[in-house]
């Protein structure tokens, strides 16, 4: 079954025809060719596909495309302001928040969602906010540090 959906993504309005059984992850990676969000499992376990939907972080592999109608989506591509990197991105670069980097877009998205709720999170709050994002390289310590430093640098 086809659906005509309209939504905003990274600040741009978008109209698209999608199928009932497509996922948000398929739409952004295949149809919109935004490949920042990654596929890691399809079971909601890894968070590599994380995006922000109406202000909240969700696993894009667990959202159906027609559900996206009327929503506001932010992917990692929408984090930076043109050429200017988001403070989180800068901090991940400066503090080794990336090893292989496959988890990084999802981590950034989770961090962004956290910082929009809690401007100066404690280490414990950051750990809790990241439990849905697996990093096989084990870069958690530096990811947490990157987020902490970025949150302190803001204002």
């Amino acid at each position: 079954m086809k659906h005509h959906i309209s939504f905003t993504i990274n600040g741009q309005s978008m109209e698209l025809t999608v199928l009932s059984h497509q996922t948000l992850l398929e739409v952004i990676r295949n149809d919109l060719r935004l490949t920042g969000a990654k596929h890691g499992c399809s079971t909601g376990e890894c968070g590599a596909c994380s995006v922000i939907m109406n202000g909240e972080v969700v696993n894009a592999c667990m959202v159906l495309a027609p559900e996206v109608d009327g929503t506001d989506i932010l992917t990692v591509e929408g984090l930076s302001d043109g050429e200017e990197l988001h403070p989180l991105q800068k901090s991940f670069i400066d503090h080794h928040g990336v090893q292989c980097g496959y988890c990084a877009p999802g981590m950034l998205i989770s961090a962004k969602a956290l910082l929009s709720r809690t401007s100066r999170p404690h280490e414990e709050e950051i750990r809790e906010a990241l439990v849905g994002n697996l990093c096989r390289c084990g870069a958690y310590a530096d990811i947490i540090k990157s987020i902490q430093v970025a949150s302190r640098a803001r204002r």
Binding site: R33, T35, G36, I93, D94, V98, G101, Y102, P105, L108
Partner: peptide
């Protein structure tokens, strides 16, 4: 001295570089 990863920026902005990202 500290030196950040060269590929880091690409990975953090979602710019395609993994094999599954190639169009």
């Amino acid at each position: 001295k500290p030196f950040p990863l060269v590929e880091a920026q690409k990975k953090l902005t979602g710019t395609s570089c993994y094999a599954g990202d190639e169009p």
